[in-house]
Amino acid sequence: MPEITEWRDRIWRYRLIGSRCGGCGSTYYPPRNSRCLKCGGDLEEVELPRRGKLLSYTVVYQAPTLYKYSTPYIVGYIELLDGTRLFAMLTDVEPDEVRVGMELEATLRKLYTYGESGHIVYGVKFRPAVG
């Protein structure tokens, strides 16, 4: 039942929740359950900024089964305004419009659907920032 794991991860995945260190301010996404990797300090959950810029990206042509109907799709390596770095799918943009350095904002979208159960899994994607 892999779908249980999607349910367990739903809150941080929907709301872009990461971890922030009370000691040195380092942030992590996905959130860490243990201690800060840099200083060993205590971590707390925090909603991360929803804007950032694109550091690098790829267009995926050979996808795992759950994403096979989405190809080709774009996955970005993104730095949020507070410096947190993460990987997320880009949406509302075509491959030839994507530029390293472009401003992005988070949006909640459908990720994939389980065929047998029809269970739809949602999560954060990023689109070109408006305004």
Binding site: R13, P30, S56, Q62, L66, F87, A88, L111
Partner: peptide, 19 residues
Amino acid sequence: VLKYSGLTDAGLAAIMARL
């Protein structure tokens, strides 16, 4: 990281290559 972003192992390598 990989499942929720749609990233594959080759996709991760591709992001490194472009970087």
